[in-house]
Design a protein around this nucleic acid. Structure first.
Lengths: 215, 215
DNA sequence: ATACTGTATATTGTATACAATCAAGAGAAA
DNA sequence: TTTCTCTTGATTGTATACAATATACAGTAT
């Protein structure tokens, strides 16, 4: 058994993971009692976890009607795309002067790994590497609040499915995205923080691209 | 007696207001029992409110040691200034095409009111109008998530004091800020959304200005 | 006087009990 | 059959009780 800080945090992690992994989705209602039974805890820590999950954007709370998973609809997708660019761009700007030789090598390696994944048609692998790539410089921007915002916004892209696009089209899209990653790596190597911010914000996260096209 | 949605929300509002108004500050510890006594409620809704307040950035929670007000130090001020520009700029971009004739007139009126406040040396009044000015277009950006982010970040500027700067210097700073507001109004009137975003982000919220210099 | 240790008190974390509201279904009236 | 109402059970909101940990302080040893 894991030694959690508190039962509240245990419950929090349990539900957050269920949502991130897609086991809970849509507008699923969460029954407090059901969670209690599943984790063998009382309602108190469960409710505390639910309140925190709602505050963190995982859930919605209808008064007297309980909590349900916040659905990912057209509108919230738009809202996220409208915000992520400026934040990710700013993170890149801040991270740029904080990167050392090894960091830049890591980015280049990730870029080339993604290229390999595309060549082999390993879409899932590409997706993972993509997150690692962006995470790498975001984590090094030196701004905890910014890191938190970006992490929260990115959650919505974790569950994205490519099923509705045919395989060849997907490859084309990923290749385009990775060409942009190449430019991002180039700007990091050149130490052009300002240009980097502009490129990440206005090109890579162009507001005109649909959510499933970028990144 | 107010008819609150729930006692939890009642407690939440009470403490949030105490913090926003400056009655609670620094690293003040919050005693659960003390809040219970003050509001005549049990610990359950109090704890639920505290958890939500912590999740919303008002408080910090040291396990087994309770909640305390998150202090505003040099570092978190820097973090906020690094983020607010891109977000406020994006809000202006999104709001621009959504403004009608009346909205633009409102912005112009607020700008001129601020000019009047400066002329009369009414610094507090200027501050209030300033918030109203920025709030006006942020509220109209059509992105609830973005509105929430900007609101949360702005909380930190509400309690700012000018005490450590002499009066003449303050006037100079406010005049400079309001000149920038004039340009912002001009861009709104011209409908130049892109230029507006750039100006708000890179000039008005220039990362080089200290927090107490801008806005 | 200072540092350490043990105990008492206070505070936080969790469980349970109670109150208030909501949802579903049975039965009656149209 | 449909709709309304009433009742019953389930679920949420709140209070209280108990358990675990931390804090404060007195007493002792160095």
């Amino acid at each position: 058994m894991d030694q959690y800080r508190s039962l509240k945090d245990h419950v929090y992690d349990h539900i957050a993971q269920a949502i991130d992994s897609g086991r809970l989705s849509g507008d699923d209602k969460l029954s407090e009692q059901q969670i209690c039974d599943a984790l063998n805890v009382s309602r108190t820590p469960v409710r505390e976890a639910l309140i925190q999950l709602a505050s963190d954007g995982y859930l919605e709370n209808l008064p007297r009607k309980g909590f349900h998973v916040k659905a990912m609809n057209e509108e919230s997708a738009r809202e996220i795309v409208e915000i992520i660019g400026p934040l990710d761009g700013r993170a890149a700007l801040l991270a740029c002067p904080r990167m050392d030789e090894d960091d830049r090598a890591q980015l280049q390696f990730l870029h080339e790994s993604m290229q390999l994944a595309i060549a082999k048609g390993m879409l899932k692998k590409y997706d993972d590497l993509q997150h690692e790539f962006h995470d790498y410089y975001v984590q090094r921007c030196g701004n905890e609040k910014l890191i938190g915002y970006v992490r929260q916004l990115n959650r919505y892209f974790m569950k994205r499915e490519y099923a509705h696009v045919d395989h060849d089209k997907q490859i084309t899209l990923l290749q385009q995205a990775n060409d942009e990653h190449a430019e991002i790596v180039r700007l990091f190597l050149a130490g052009d923080a300002t240009g980097l911010q502009r490129y990440v914000r206005d090109v890579h996260w162009s507001i005109d691209n649909a959510p499933f096209l970028v990144w």
